[in-house]
């Protein structure tokens, strides 16, 4: 028996909106720790790792570890039917091939349930080693989204270079080139508006903008984004989900042959 009640149901709606275009089908794993997912895109270039900790749910019952295969497009369709203020409860019986999403309005005057068929998915779980990153960049998530969107109108790839002076995002395309430099800036009114570069060892990596743009669909989940970079290994783009966990995107770099 599985029963997860999330008072802030909009979080789950936002999570699905942020990953449904990157990954088609995925297994959601439920354990005492929480509700999690790890899935790669079909080309094995990007990976999403989600964790919603059990403590973040108002009610969390998971009698045994279970893995539920879902089509994320279909799940997103169902969650779109929940209001932004609705409480969302996920329910599944042992051995059942369906999951039920229950939506309750905040005033309890409307209750809806949507049942979705589960799927068998061959999961390709990757072991992600602990890495020491050369540079960790924390910046407003909306600013990062803006930069990725702007640069993708000029070129297909971005070079992200971190130096002591700041971080530079560069692209080139048929019509020209573009460079955006963000300097460390901690003298702001609100901490979430700061740009912070931790451990600023020089690092320069190239990535496909198409994927970074896809990751920025998670912007509504967090005011800030943390980007961890090291030479010649995948970048981690992390959006923290307040009180609950995180959504992390990994992207393999483009490397000169």
């Amino acid at each position: 028996m599985l029963e997860l009640r999330l008072v802030q149901g909009s979080l789950l709606k936002k999570v699905l909106e942020s990953i449904k275009d990157l990954v088609n089908d995925a297994n959601f794993d439920c354990s005492a720790t929480g509700f999690s997912l790890q899935a790669m895109d079909s080309s094995h270039v990007a990976l999403v790792a989600l964790l919603l900790r059990s403590e973040g749910f108002e009610h969390y019952r998971c009698d045994r570890n279970i893995s539920m295969g879902m089509n994320l497009g279909n799940m997103a369709k169902m969650l779109k039917c929940a209001g932004n203020d609705d409480i969302i409860t996920l329910k599944a019986d042992d051995g059942s091939d369906t999951v039920t999403f229950m939506f309750e309005s905040p005033t309890q005057d409307k209750i809806a349930d949507f049942e979705m068929r589960l799927m068998d998915i061959d999961s390709e779980h990757l072991g992600i080693p602990e890495a020491e990153y050369h540079a960790i960049l924390i910046m407003p998530s909306a600013e990062f989204a803006r930069i990725c969107k702007d640069l993708s109108s000029i070129g297909d790839t971005v070079v992200i270079s971190v130096t002591k002076e700041g971080v530079k995002f560069s692209t080139r395309g048929d019509i020209g080139t573009a460079n955006v430099v963000c300097r460390q800036n901690t003298t702001v009114d609100k901490p979430e508006e700061a740009t912070v570069i931790e451990m600023p060892e020089p690092v320069s990596l190239t990535f496909a903008l198409r994927y970074l743009n896809s990751f920025t669909k998670a912007t509504p989940l967090s005011n800030t984004v943390t980007i961890s970079l090291s030479s010649e290994i995948p970048v981690v783009v992390e959006y923290k989900i307040a009180e609950m966990g995180y959504i992390r995107f990994y992207l393999a770099p483009k490397i000169e042959e």
Binding site: H44, V45, L47, L126, I233, Y250, K254
Partner: peptide
């Protein structure tokens, strides 16, 4: 020539 790598080159399949 710049080539797109895959995650499976960096992470082990479990």
């Amino acid at each position: 020539l710049i080539k797109q790598t895959m995650l499976t080159q960096f992470f082990e399949m479990n």
